[in-house]
């Protein structure tokens, strides 16, 4: 049987295809063109299918030629398509651009990063610890005795009350874990999820995030606690914010303080967010209780330190003016996308 040289076929197809491509007036006819030549059952594949008719020697050459033709036709298709799209778009440039979909970080991550960055400027490292904790780390080591009313603030979820295994109610156990394996001086923050058996409402969620901070050295005093936290709050919320320290009680710090800042919503004038006081509670802090130091084997007369803890969602609420803590866990991506 006489075989037609494939070389000729290739040239014929190329010539015809170029002509047809140039005359294709709209994208529909261009797509038809693509199917005819480059489609699964198109002419190119037709040529490939003939390869088996050739000897190994000829096949090599023919294969290369067909590949070459295919590349040319794909190039033509691309150019024509581009040209058509350009023409269509250039007709009226006033139409809006196509909106791309873009990823976003959750506001908890965004605020956490902002906070850790401020503390990093002051030399604080970042640590983490387990979320399933023992009663020892969550309470006892922090000078919170069993069966004491001071424990009531931390309404606890138990995984096994008998074995004293619980979901941590604050990030403070990380303090103890850090101190157990680090000798002073150091300064560190820890961020993570915390769990409390709180009924859900606009300001309470059974799950929330907290940032814990701890600095221990010789000669650390209450004025340093004030200095570091005042810097943090003004860096986070602006220099115009006023910061107030008032006495408070935490079993693991003594003296203890509560820190509030002038309300950034009413600028101190009094609104519903600040309960008309002009101030919003931001965090709790204090000088580390010597019993906590003794529990981890530090010399409580030699070393002093301060510790602080704050809710990430609470800071995000203040920062962005978010009206309900439940938004953080609904994962409405329209909500999440607002903050980056």
């Amino acid at each position: 049987m006489e075989r037609k040289p494939i070389k000729d076929d290739i040239e014929i197809i190329l010539k015809r295809a170029v002509e047809e491509a140039v005359t294709a007036a709209d994208s529909e006819s261009l797509e038809n063109w693509k199917t005819k030549y480059l489609g699964r059952k198109g002419e190119i594949n037709g040529l490939f299918s003939r390869l088996s008719e050739f000897s190994a020697e000829e096949r090599k050459d023919a294969g290369a030629r067909i590949n070459d033709l295919k590349n040319k036709l794909e190039g033509i298709y691309g150019e024509r398509k581009e040209g058509m799209a350009e023409k269509r778009r250039s007709a009226n440039l006033s139409f809006p651009g196509k909106s791309p979909s873009i990823g976003a970080l959750h506001p908890v991550t965004i605020v956490t990063r902002e906070m850790t960055a401020i503390f990093a400027e002051m030399g604080f490292g970042i640590a983490s610890g387990p979320e399933i904790e023992t009663d020892y780390y969550n309470f006892e080591a922090l000078n919170i005795p069993a069966e004491h009313p001071s424990k009531d603030v931390w309404d606890t979820f138990y995984v096994s009350e008998k074995d004293k295994i619980l979901l941590r109610t604050h990030t403070s156990p990380v303090q103890v874990r850090i101190m157990e394996k680090t000798s002073p001086p150091f300064r560190v923050v820890a961020v993570g999820k915390c769990f409390r058996k709180d009924d859900v409402d606009s300001t309470h969620s059974p799950v929330f995030h907290q940032m814990e901070g701890l600095m221990v050295d010789e000669g650390i005093n209450f004025s340093h606690l004030k200095g570091v936290l005042t810097h943090f709050i003004t860096r986070m919320f602006g220099d115009s914010v006023k910061v107030k320290f008032t006495p408070s009680f935490f079993p693991f710090t003594e003296p203890s303080a509560e820190v509030s800042m002038s309300c950034n919503i009413c600028k101190g004038g009094g609104c519903s967010t600040c309960h008309k006081t002009g101030y919003i509670e931001v965090l709790g802090c204090g000088m580390v209780h010597p019993q906590v130091f003794r529990n981890v084997g530090y010399d409580a007369e030699k070393f002093t330190g301060f510790a602080f803890g704050m809710g990430i969602e609470r800071l995000a609420i203040i920062k962005f003016g978010i009206t309900d803590i439940r938004y953080f866990y609904q994962n409405d991506i329209r909500f999440i996308g607002q903050f980056s």
């Binding site: 991550t109 990063r113 990093a120 002051m122 030399g123 604080f124 490292g125 970042i126 640590a127 983490s128 680090t182 001086p185 150091f186 300064r187 560190v188 961020v191 600095m215 050295d217 000669g219 650390i220 209450f222 004025s223 340093h224 004030k226 200095g227 570091v228 005042t230 810097h231 107030k244 320290f245 008032t246 006495p247 303080a257």
Partner: peptide
């Protein structure tokens, strides 16, 4: 408490490295 000055601590700059786990996660 308002009488206590706000001061920055003068501290050793012994670094406290961050947890590799946290850094990788971010």
């Amino acid at each position: 408490y308002s009488e206590v000055p706000s001061e920055m601590p003068v501290a050793s700059i012994k670094p406290t490295p961050s947890s590799a786990e946290v850094e990788a996660a971010e």
